[in-house]
Design a protein around this nucleic acid. Structure first.
Length: 685
DNA sequence: TGGCTAAAG
DNA sequence: GGTTCTTTAGCCA
């Protein structure tokens, strides 16, 4: 298969790109002089160039005027893109293997979030209405996927596995079911290891230290599919004469191995794309789904472009609905009002058509897509993407999410009463605290360094979120009053409004139960925010409530997370300062006569367990400072309870004066919250 | 900080 | 009859 005349791979693998410089004159591109190229700052001595052939002087003038720059492909990286096959469905199938043989759909409220391939074979599609799906496939087995916990857990496990095979920690998760890996280093290392005389019996070393750790593979062929399909007789590029070829080939085997392990060890089949940047890897992967992989052989200038040509621009990651439609409207010379704007109108146009459009250039794209409020440099970015050039790096793995949020929608039955609100707020707050403890707390390995915790299972926070945010969305009521044609504003994502405040530090106490912390969070922080959003005491018509913690301050530790936050006592001091602001703010509107204290937790907060231990695990070990600070906060919180909360539903109070003692916990509960409170007891955890 | 938009799965 | 639940990122004032 390999001509004997080819040079040894080891030498070839070290060949620089200079030796690969080539001109592609046989495509209908423009000629641009290299001088022009240099003037434009696009010079590249390392890479070959695509020369665009100009056929007419007119075109030449046009080209020189608009100077479309053909982006320089940077193909010195190797990127893998993993996509777990119908992930949500697979999670349920792994829990209950009998489901594998049945058509399975995962629902979220009234829509089908996803379904397995058995269901797809019967015509069921993702994002269908449940009612439609059941019509098409009455035997469809449905599972509820509104609670994402199980998916998050599995996603994290699979991600950790992939991460454990990375040398550079560049392992980026996209959603729950996709992962990018930059494997340039590990692949390059293994290319050097290839023995040209024994390709069939190659060994892939997964560890630089331990040469035994790895797997055998056959380097005489690609693993999985390739684009273009590899002809058995070869097509010129070989392991010996093309470095990118060797890297992609070796990478295809790594991808195959990782996919195999994901399936064997975890039970998840996946699809993988192998290429030199994120966009290409992701697109390549979609060519053979499910349970397969595809390596894009973009070995020569123009290969990436040829690959991109066929794609509808809407399918290119990063090209969303809005931008695709703007481009299509321009190409088809269609006024933007001409297309139905309400529903997602399919954008059909392909990369080829866009690039063939007269005068197309980064500048023109900037004109089409740019403007106030839009991303700067969008023209260049899209232009590059259409050429298969994507310089975005794979982000380094971080254990710390930038934000944790939890929300629920109330589409059929909006929230209107305080009881309903309290019930939902408590439920959301409990989920949030649970999530914070799962995602932000880790076991502390070194137990003697924290004698002050006095706890058996030493745990600590990876990061402390500083900010709490509450967002709501109200469902617009059809206006009965005016018969005008004015359509009511659409109830969409963007009709949210939000308020934020510092996150009280008691949420970091791991000693207290979730319910207790959640209850306090609702009463002491979320309700005040709610009142800043809604003056009315009821009839808000809430269609959505979201609570979110963000603004993470890493505690700074061994795990490679970005530094800062070393000194925890300092961190709590800042929080203290913030909390003072908070207190002031809460009192800012002249506090009304506090006749009653709705939601007061005084009964509970007097109990001795309540004192503290917030951050007793702080790495500084400065217990005194921390504890003092915390006491401060407690005091402030008491203040807020006494005044802030009472202020909250201020003015004309007719019913909030009455509080009753809960027979179960003895807490004083305002009348309106009593039913919610009882349910709270009934639910247990 | 908060509003708003866009995109992703 | 019905569009879920998030996360990230960017611009603007």
């Amino acid at each position: 298969m390999w001509p004997g005349s080819m040079s040894p791979y080891c030498a070839a693998a070290r060949t620089t790109y200079n030796s690969e410089a080539r001109a592609l004159v046989d495509q209908d591109y423009y000629w641009v002089t290299s001088v022009l190229w240099l003037i434009e700052g696009q010079s590249s001595l390392r890479y070959g160039r695509a020369w665009r052939k100009m056929t007419t002087p007119l075109l030449m003038r046009q080209t020189l005027r608009t100077t479309p720059k053909i982006p320089t492909p940077k193909d010195d990286r190797i990127i893998l893109h993993f996509d777990y096959d119908c992930f949500y469905a697979s999670v349920f199938e792994n829990e209950t293997p009998a489901l594998k043989a049945l058509p399975l759909g995962i629902k979220q409220k009234s829509i089908l979030a996803t379904c397995n391939y058995v269901a797809r074979a019967r015509g069921v599609k993702k994002l269908m209405l449940i009612s439609d799906a059941e019509k098409i496939c009455p035997e469809l087995v449905l599972r509820n996927g509104e609670d994402l916990t199980r998916f998050r857990d599995v996603s994290k496990r699979l991600w950790s596995f992939l991460r454990s095979h990375s040398w550079n920690r560049k392992v980026e998760r996209l959603g729950l079911d996709e992962v990018f890996l930059d494997v340039t280093d590990i692949v390059e290392y293994n290319v050097q290891l290839l023995n040209p005389n024994a390709l069939v019996h190659s060994f892939f070393q997964l560890s630089e230290q331990d040469p035994e750790k790895g797997f055998s593979f056959d380097a005489s062929a690609f693993f999985g599919c390739t684009i273009p399909p590899k002809r058995p007789d070869g097509d010129g590029a070989t392991l010996g004469n093309h470095p990118a070829y060797a890297r992609l080939l070796v990478a295809s085997h790594l991808a195959g191995y990782l996919r195999h392990k994901l399936e064997e060890d975890f039970g998840y089949t996946s699809t993988c794309g192998v290429s030199t940047n994120k966009v290409l890897a992701k697109l390549a992967g979609t060519k053979n789904k499910p349970k397969n992989q595809t390596t894009l052989l973009n070995l020569h200038e123009g290969d990436a472009l040829a690959f991109m040509d066929e794609w509808q621009i809407r399918k290119i990651p990063g090209m969303g609905f809005k931008n695709s439609q703007l481009v299509e409207n321009h190409i088809l010379q269609r006024p933007s009002e001409a297309v139905p704007h309400d529903h997602e109108h399919a954008v059909k146009i392909t990369t080829r058509e866009v690039l063939a459009h007269p005068g197309m250039s980064p500048g023109l794209l900037e004109k089409i897509l740019g403007g106030p409020g839009t991303e700067r440099g969008i023209g260049d970015k899209v232009w590059n993407m259409l050429h298969g050039v994507d310089n975005a790096g794979v982000k380094e793995a971080s254990d710390i999410p930038t934000q944790i949020s939890i929300e629920d929608t109330y589409v059929t039955k909006t929230l209107n009463t305080q009881a309903e609100l309290m019930r939902e707020l408590h439920a959301l707050a409990r989920s949030l605290i649970r999530r914070m403890r799962v995602d932000l707390v880790v076991a502390e390995e070194d137990d003697n360094s924290y004698p002050l915790t006095g706890e058996t299972a030493a745990q600590k926070w990876l990061a402390y979120p500083k900010t709490l945010r509450l967002s709501t969305r109200v469902k617009s009521r059809p206006s009965v009053m005016d018969g005008s044609q004015q359509a009511p504003p659409r109830d969409n994502y963007y009709n949210r409004s939000s308020r934020s405040s510092p996150l009280p530090t008691f949420v970091f106490s791991l000693k207290d139960g979730i319910d207790y912390v959640a209850e306090r969070l609702v009463n002491e922080a979320i309700l005040p925010l709610f009142r800043r959003l809604h003056n009315e005491r009821h009839n808000w018509n809430l269609a959505l409530v979201n609570i979110c913690v963000t603004n993470m301050v890493p505690t700074g530790n061994e795990d490679g997370s970005v530094g800062g936050g070393r000194d925890i006592s300092k961190m709590f001091k800042t929080q203290g300062a913030k909390l003072k602001e908070f207190t002031v703010y809460s009192n800012d509107p002249p506090a009304p006569v506090a006749t009653a204290k709705p939601n007061s937790l005084r009964g509970l907060s007097n109990s001795s367990e309540n004192s503290a231990a917030v951050a007793s695990q702080g790495p500084t070990g400065d217990a005194r400072v921390v504890a003092n600070d915390h006491d401060d906060h407690d005091q402030q919180m008491e203040d807020i309870e006494a005044e802030g909360t009472a202020m909250a539903w201020d003015d004309d109070d007719d019913d909030d004066g009455e509080c009753r003692r809960c027979p179960e916990c003895g807490q004083r509960i305002p009348e309106f919250a009593m039913s919610a409170h009882r349910r709270f007891h009934a639910l247990g955890d």
